[in-house]
Write a protein that binds this DNA or RNA. Structure first.
Lengths: 338, 338
DNA sequence: GCCTCCAAGTGTTACGTATAACTTCCTTCC
DNA sequence: GGAAGGAAGTTATACGTAACACTTGGAGGC
């Protein structure tokens, strides 16, 4: 009988089934067709079940030289957006026998900022959000296959990129506001150095500038409700004509803008329109519901994982941005008076 | 020179430094004092740096028979609550040389529901939220050290438990509402079979029953804004006197209740009071700001990890529930008329 | 001058798995 | 009846690391 104190190994299973360890490996690895008889295979499977055998992953990983595990580096877990990205990536990964380990780029996790130290797991590759760029120096150190999410295709050091078509989303927002008649816009920008936010600023400016008489002012805020509230209040109490619409870099900032507007006694959308970007649950929790751009987070994660699998298999990753769509709700309306 | 195509091993480092592989292991493992001279040690470290050596974790894990990696099983990533739990757990883990791998119990991730298959990594232990109970059968299969978060201390099969003092939080909510004069309460309950929600129902009922003339009705809803809205609308349009307060099992449900009340033309808190539980960012994003119970998610995670470390080292985990605190905001007021 | 002891290493092994290479036995075919 | 070939396994090995047991050369003690 096997030693009960320690986990059973494939050798224990072999002994119990009266075969060699190699046979166990063949059977459980599903490579036994034509090499082991059906009856023996069943005997092995039964023994494995009886002993509660689980293969030692460390040994398997060492032997195979790969782990079928990838790391997903995200900026934070505070919104369901990256939860969606994980879900999509994990679904594709599972279909290919891969696992996904999550590394939330830390804010205050402490000294071990190294994702590899933190995740301990041996990895085959990495998918990283550009917003978590601070964690990436370590990653480029190892030369693990890398896929960047929402990152500048030109400046990614040759890593494959998968992008949402944020530029088009901002374009849709701008057209929507212009069509409603807005000309003076406040851009509530995320105070985070990341390509995905630079794109918003650039595209909004370009689109508005195409129409004469428009004006875009910019306020910067950290991505938090309170930070956005403060920045919005400051921007709206400053000198000059009040903007008729606020374009926010994401929904969380928009929620902060809502709070500022309530404090200032301004009504949405009567006095001022507000738009977001993400379409989180938050967008329909606030009143009025937020006009925003829906991002398909799960598809984003799926595409990221598929791109990484392509890199791992030496194929070229699928190209083309992921489409996004404006969702018009109650927070936008024509400006009151021209 | 080392083969450039494949990752350098400790043997490559040894060769470069002109020492044996054993010496490299001693130096880099920080066990060289009195065994290797300072100059040799420095030479080894330099060689390791030059080659960009990273130890092969699979080999180390196999050799040591442990991975210094634990799995954190959470029900979902859709709120910042479990992000906080992760942050706390990861902080403590890092201080002890451990890594934390996240397994969000899937809703629709697909066939590989097995956390071990999904996380691939070899694990030393598991911390699991009771809300993710569906994933736990596999976990009990292996006899990995296990710590349960927010789980019935009596029914946890001997696993260590770490709990928030939810009962006390509900008690505080009930006292607050009773003091304001509320007697007819609707309990908007999460339609999830979990101890942490059972506690809420039990404690609320007990506390209200202590005062004569009180009445607690219950509505069940899935934990989503829309589900909560629907359930609340149904409950409030049913026959019988309208409740003067709604006690929600968490903040997300409260946000749904807000939407239902807006649709029904009822004002908060004038017509009806609402309370939540969690104190998410959402709680201050909605209008009026939500009276709720603040849970210290990070401390929860820290305590969970410390308990698991205790189990791994054969010590007894710290006992005692984690205190929580009522935060009174604008969503509660005395009922209009008695 | 010989024994002891310590510093500074090296040789070797085991962890558990997957698989290439080999063996053995039985059937089939000419 | 002997060779060929396939079915059903087994034997042996390597993956990269950590650590135990051993070696060597010199310093120190009496």
């Amino acid at each position: 009988m096997a030693r009960s104190s320690t986990r059973p190994t494939s050798r224990d299973v072999a002994h119990a089934a009266g075969v060699s360890q190699a046979a166990v490996s063949l059977v459980l690895g599903d490579k036994w067709r034509g090499r082991v008889s059906e009856t023996t295979a069943e005997r092995v499977r039964q023994a494995a079940r009886d002993l509660g055998y689980r293969p030692n992953l460390a040994a398997r990983n060492l032997r195979l030289g790969r782990t079928r595990t990838v790391l997903l580096v995200v900026p934070a877990l505070t919104t369901e957006f990256f939860a969606g990205v994980y879900t999509g990536a994990a679904r594709v990964a599972a279909a290919h026998g891969f696992g996904v380990v999550l590394y939330p780029s830390p804010e205050g996790i402490g000294p071990a900022r190294d994702p590899f130290a933190s995740a301990q797991a041996a990895l085959d590759g990495v998918i990283a959000s550009s917003m978590a760029a601070d964690a990436l120096t370590d990653i480029r150190g190892d030369q693990l296959p890398l896929v960047m999410l929402d990152s500048d295709p030109a400046g990614s050091l040759g890593a494959a990129t998968v992008n949402l078509d944020i530029a088009d989303g901002v374009r849709q927002v701008a057209e929507h506001l212009l069509n409603l008649g807005h000309r003076r816009v406040l851009h509530l920008a995320a105070d985070v150095p990341s390509w995905t936010f630079e794109v918003r600023a650039r595209e909004l400016a370009a689109r508005m500038a195409a129409v004469p008489g428009t004006e875009v002012r910019t306020a910067r805020a950290p991505i938090s409700i309170d930070g956005a509230r403060t920045a919005t209040e400051a921007a709206l109490t400053a000198a000059g004509p009040r903007p008729t619409a606020i374009v926010c870099d994401d929904d969380k900032l928009a929620a902060g803008a809502y709070k500022a507007l309530r404090r200032l006694g301004l009504r949405i959308p009567d006095d001022i329109s507000v738009t977001g970007l993400d379409d989180l649950a938050l967008a329909t929790a606030i009143d009025p519901e937020l006009t925003t751009v829906r991002l398909d987070a799960e598809l984003f994660g799926e595409r990221g994982m598929r791109a990484l699998l392509a890199v791992l298999e030496g194929r070229r990753p699928e190209s083309g941005d992921i489409p996004v769509q404006l969702v018009v709700r109650g927070s936008t309306a024509p400006p009151r008076t021209p």
